[in-house]
Amino acid sequence: MSNQSLEQQQQEHLLGYRQLAVVLCLLLLLTVVTVAVSYVDLGFFNVPVALAIACGKVSLVLLFFMHLKYEGAIINISFLSTVLFLVIMIGFTFWDVAFR
């Protein structure tokens, strides 16, 4: 019985308005940063820096807006598997193209 109520609490985790607003502010801040950085020529690092900031933004959206942080093992593991598959798909293709 107590087990179920614990499960119920996890299931119904609720994000407050303030928490969501903080996430939005961080996302807007990172958008400003990525636009500002794009005016600076970093040479080789242009693309990696832009993608790193994008990954940070995506993580915030996934963890809080899509409440992945509060999901159970099934969704977390399957999501990470999808990301792993994506990394293999993009990484190996690019590897092949770059060193052909």
């Binding site: 990525t34 794009s38 242009n46 693309v47 993608l51 994008a54 933004k57």
Partner: peptide, 12 residues
């Protein structure tokens, strides 16, 4: 869109 934006609009 978060990925589309830097890839298309901010490429240098």
């Amino acid at each position: 869109w978060i990925f589309v934006f830097p890839l298309f609009y901010l490429v240098l």
